[in-house]
Simulated assay, not measured.
Amino acid sequence: MTVKYILTRLLGKAGYEFKKLPVSRSDKNDLIRLEADVKKFDKIKIHFGSGPRILKGWINIDLSYAHFGPYLQYYTDKHYPEVMRGNRDDLYIIDIFSDGIPLPDESVDIIFHEDFFEHLTQKQQIIFLAETLRVMKKGAVQRINTPNLVASMRDNSSFEKGKTGVYTAEWDNWEHYSVISPAILEDMAKIVGYSKIFFNSKDKSIAAKELPAEYRPDENDRAAADSNVFANLVK
Rank of each mutant, 00 (worst) to 15 (best):
N156I: 03
A140K: 00
A140W: 01
P52V: 15
V38D: 10
R222M: 15
D90P: 02
K19N: 05
P212M: 10
K161Q: 07
W171C: 07
E175D: 10
I59H: 02
M84A: 08
F68Y: 15
A66Y: 10
N173E: 09
S181Y: 11
E17T: 09
F199I: 09
D187S: 10
D203Y: 00
K39M: 10
V3C: 03
P212K: 10
G165C: 02
S50D: 05
G139Q: 04
S157G: 04
L120M: 14
P147C: 12
E118R: 01
F116P: 01
V229P: 05
H47P: 03
R53M: 14
Y65E: 14
R143F: 03
V192N: 05
N228G: 08
H119P: 02
Y65F: 14
M84H: 07
L103A: 08
M188D: 09
Q122S: 15
A223Q: 14
K209M: 04
D99V: 15
F48A: 01
E118D: 02
L63W: 13
G139T: 07
E35K: 11
A130R: 13
N173Q: 11
N220D: 15
N228Y: 13
I96S: 12
A207D: 01
K78S: 06
A224I: 06
A140G: 00
Y74R: 00
Y65T: 15
I191Q: 12
A189Y: 09
E17H: 00
P182R: 07
F68S: 13
I126K: 11
K190G: 13
Y74C: 03
I110K: 00
T132I: 10
I93G: 06
S98H: 10
R9P: 04
